[in-house]
Each structure stands twice: as C-alpha cells, then as structure tokens.
Amino acid sequence: MNHRSGFGVQVLLLAALYLFLYGPILYVIYVSFQIDSIWPFPPTLTLEHHTDLWQRRDYHAALWNSVTIGFGTGLIATLFATLAAMAILKYRSPGSGLVAGLFLAPLFIAPILIGISSLMFSRTVLGMPGSIFGATLANSTYATAFALLVVLAQFARYDWRLDDAAMVFGARPWRTFWEITLPITWPAMLGAFIVSFLLAFNNLEISFYNLGATPTLPTLAWGALRHGISAELYALAAIINFAVFALFTVLYLLLRLGTIRID
C-alpha cells in the first residue's frame, strides 16, 4: 500500500465514521418533523410532534429535574476537578499520581456499578431514599473524571510562574486566584462545567437507580421506549441533540480560546 492510497483509505474511514455517528442523529431530527415517522419519504413537514411534546406536563417536570441534576453535577465536578488540577500542576507533589488515579478511577468502573453501589450505600448506610440530591452526588463522581481531563488538558498550557509573580508582589493566594489565575483560565472551567452538565443531564444508568420515583428526561425516554418508539420521542431526541450541539460549539470555542500562553 503506497502513501497516497493509504491516505485516501483513511479519509474514507473518517468520513464513514462521521456518517455512522451522525447519520442516525440527523435522521431522527428529520423524522421528528415528518407526519409519517415510519417511512417519511417524500417529506411531509409538520411541527405536530414538537407541539405535542411541549404540551406534555410530565416532560416539563422531567426537564426541570434533569437541569437540576446537570447543574449540581456541573458545579461539584468543576469545583473538585479545578482544585485538583491546579494542585497537581502547580505543586508537582509526589501524591499527584495517587490523586489523579482516584479522580480518573470512575472511567474504569462501569456506570451501572456506580449506579447500584451508590443506591445501596445511600439507602442502607445513609438511610437516604432515592432523590435528585442522591442522583446528583452519584453523577458527580463519574463527571469529575471527565471534568479533570478537560481542565488538565487546558491548564497544562498555563504558566504557573504568573501565580508566583503575583505572590512575590504580595498577593495572597485568594487574590492571586481571583485576579490572575481565574481571568486567564476560566474557559477551561466553563468547558469542564459544560461537559459534566451534559453527562449528568443525559445520564440514564447512574441516575436511574438513585432517583427513586423522580422522573428525568432520560428515564421518561427509557419508559417511553419500552412501549416502542413514539413520535414525541423523536421530537425530544431532536431538541436534545440540537441543544447538545449548540453547547458543544461553545465548548469548542472555549477550548480554542484556551488559556493565554506566555512563553
């Protein structure tokens, strides 16, 4: 295989990957605007499924619950990940490896195990029945790993000598953080927040076990899907996918903006 043909094969593989990943998503969005959802050709546009969805009261409550879990998880995961990433990169302590291992461990534990173990723990040991709060805590353990990856990747480009410089001029650690570190590195933190928010917002396998009877969008969708796929599910999928891609564009811009690099 010579160089050119290898290149061509790789371009084809990449294109096929995007088709594989985005084909089903784009098709669902297309179908959500069609009257006949089984064989929607030729296209017959309608907004009926979307307006039906907006009138469903149960979806409103579920949306609010999902947003609450996403927001709580986003805050917790971003806070812990940011603190840990700063400590790891700034102080280069021998404990760094151990801490990074603990923070990234959830990546190597199946989500369903995190779900059932936190269910058993909060129910039996903490005496806490399923709730949004419990689901937020369980999701936060998983999301912190992703948040740490995002923040570490971005913080690696920050020059910590800036902090030292501020300290030399007499700034206390908090002031250094507020006036130097935060203004420069906030895109990394917002990026970590977006990723952990989305993970928790859309999570099923961890949330499901910790929610008790509280509905979220993924659990409602799960219940609906058990009775076969329905038109309002297409509308839901279309809206969520659209929102995810909007936030993802923001994430991309934040990562591009990145942290200011001073060489």
């Binding site: 840990a84 302590s93 195990l113 936190s118 723990f121 039996t124 936060s140 353990t141 912190t144």
Partner: peptide
C-alpha cells in the same frame, strides 16, 4: 507546598472516597 497540595485535593478526595469507594466497598459487604 505539600500541605497546600493536600488542602486543595482534599475536598474532591474526600468526596470520591465517600461517594465512590465506600459504596463499592458496601456492595462487597452486602
């Protein structure tokens, strides 16, 4: 710096020990 390091990683470490490791140990017990 070692003390500062551990102070900064402490909140997340405690959180993960309590809400990730203890639950996993709990299901081993159960």
């Amino acid at each position: 710096n070692t003390v500062r390091f551990w102070l900064m990683v402490l909140p997340g470490t405690v959180f993960l020990v309590v809400f990730l490791l203890l639950p996993l140990i709990a299901i081993v017990v159960f």
